[in-house]
């Protein structure tokens, strides 16, 4: 369960103060598939990074799974993020010069697992998204679709309960976008909460989407 209570987020740039979120409250139940839509600059990404504890609100509370994530010290919010949240970014955001497998184990490194444990988790994530055959290829030479699967495998390698996706289909063609949606549906059926921030109309009419939240100028309008 994700709760945002009366959140205000202001970015201070040298020239001006940008109000990214203006008293936003939001409630997303566990296991829901939620889509954030809105024009560019309306604050969608900001909400995602607040939920992940990557940035902190100027006022208000962010509560994820009962934890007030905005008040956690860095080590704890990182641990929380690692254990509960998987991120899928617009441009995949893989580390281009590492191999597929090395990219996928990046979230596991701070856990200091045993070698076998690490192998096992990486292997199962790669197999789940059928990328295992490319395990040692360098990511930057992969096709867009393969890179996308690596990004998803990395997001899911810790078996998180929440998936945050920021414009996941922006760089994908229609076929790959549909594949991604299929994966989201599968994850939803496994009980994972999914929050997608997107412009892509593809998401707006999906049957599996539980709530569609529309934003404008840092506020929720629908």
């Amino acid at each position: 369960m994700i709760v945002l209570k009366d959140i205000r987020k202001v970015y201070a740039t040298p020239s001006e103060e940008v109000i990214a979120l203006d008293h936003v409250s939001l409630h997303i139940k566990a296991g829901q598939f939620c889509v954030l839509k809105g024009a560019s600059g309306s604050g969608k990404s900001t909400i995602l990074s607040l939920i992940a504890g990557l940035s902190k609100p100027n006022s208000g509370e962010v509560i994820v799974d009962g934890k007030q994530i905005s008040k956690l010290p860095d080590t704890f919010s990182a641990n929380f993020r690692r254990a509960h949240i998987g991120f899928i970014f617009q441009k995949f955001h893989l580390i281009p010069t590492l191999s597929v497998k090395e990219n996928i184990i990046v979230p596991l490194i701070p856990e200091n697992l045993t070698q076998e444990h690490m192998e096992e988790r990486a292997q199962s994530a790669m197999e789940k998204f059928s990328i295992a055959h490319k395990a040692s290829s360098i990511v930057k030479y992969l096709s867009g679709g393969e890179q996308q699967r690596v990004a998803i495998a990395r997001a899911l390698v810790n078996q998180p309960k929440i998936i945050l996706a920021d414009e996941p289909t922006a760089n994908l063609d229609a076929k790959l976008s549909l594949e991604l949606i299929a994966i989201f549906e599968m994850l939803k059926s496994e009980g994972v909460s999914i929050i997608v921030a997107t412009h892509d109309p593809l998401f707006f009419e999906l049957a599996c989407v539980d709530s569609l939240i529309e934003m404008k100028n840092g506020a929720i309008i629908a």
């Binding site: 201070a12 902190k56 609100p57 100027n58 006022s59 208000g60 008040k71 010290p73």
Partner: peptide
């Protein structure tokens, strides 16, 4: 001030 949500507090952290 642990309870503050000001930029100053974040910078101190």
């Amino acid at each position: 001030n642990r309870h503050a949500t000001t930029p100053v507090q974040y910078a101190l952290e």
